[in-house]
Amino acid sequence: MDSVVAARNPGDGVGPDARPVEKCRLITSTDPMTAWKQYYLPQTLSEAIQTINSCNPSCLIISGGTDLLLELTQRHRPAVENLIDVSRVIEMSAIEERDGRLFIGAAVPLKHVAANPLVNKHAQALAESTGQIGGPQVRAVGTLGGNVGHALPAGDGAISLLALDAWATITSPQGTRHVPLLDLYTGPGVSSLIPGQEIIVNFDIPVHQAGTGSAFSRVMRPQGVALPVINMAAWITVDKAIIQQASIAVGPAGPIPRRAQGLEKFLTGKTFGSSVLAEGQRILLEEVKFRSSPLRATAEYRDHLAGVLLERVLTSAWHRAVDTSYARVS
């Protein structure tokens, strides 16, 4: 009953007698489909642009690749001919203060963003959020450019950048543009970056003045995908116990991250306290309509949590702002 195998000479059983010919055609494996064919690691921006030009049009630009490579290997994206990895581009790898603005290279690994002293001084919200993305191994590779480029409506890094009024510098073979962060978003998971052409070079935010403070917070579910049920960042400027300027970003509250401008306007000119908070929570829910997502959260739960997070980020940002304004006085 098992004579087929017993009669076969083990180890070379691919001869025609080993199995019916029609069932299997022996063709030497020459060119199997792989997630990518060519992998480029340009070291400078001009090298990156050159590579883009030479690969045109079949290339995909990645940064740390912690999300995109999984989409490729899990075949949620078709395999590509050329992958251009910009995570080693020198011009994209610095965090520096220049002309009153803090520039954060889009290729700086998240763990370095989170630990950077300038970021911790000027953008506590960004330090807090980048320190919570993924786990340590992912943060060692993943970048802020990737977090924004992935264009999720509640990317932790992106929500902080948005509250911090960040702009982004984009470059491509066609030239360079400097745009407000929100201009990069067109829909959930869709950025306005021209695929295979445009690269986010860096982000820039105003440097910290005395009397400013920012904070980030989020709520997760212990089950399911590690995306926040809701996240929020605040950046405020306080002078003589009065909020001079407020910026609040929240997600997921629509297809793209969003600012709560009505709330920002309301907070301006107020002193932070329980009645301002209560009114602020009401205004936030009036202008931001959270939705229900199956298996994650109902809109009502998000409404409730928005109030919790607003208290958390405003309290924290207020204390940070007030501490620095005292520091200025003394």
């Binding site: 069932k23 299997c24 063709i27 494996s29 060119d31 199997p32």
Partner: peptide, 17 residues
């Protein structure tokens, strides 16, 4: 069957036991 490198494809019709 046309994919390069394929050595065998079996379905229930091939189950002899």
């Amino acid at each position: 069957r046309k994919i390069p490198g394929i050595r065998a494809i079996l379905t229930a019709a091939d189950l002899k036991h």
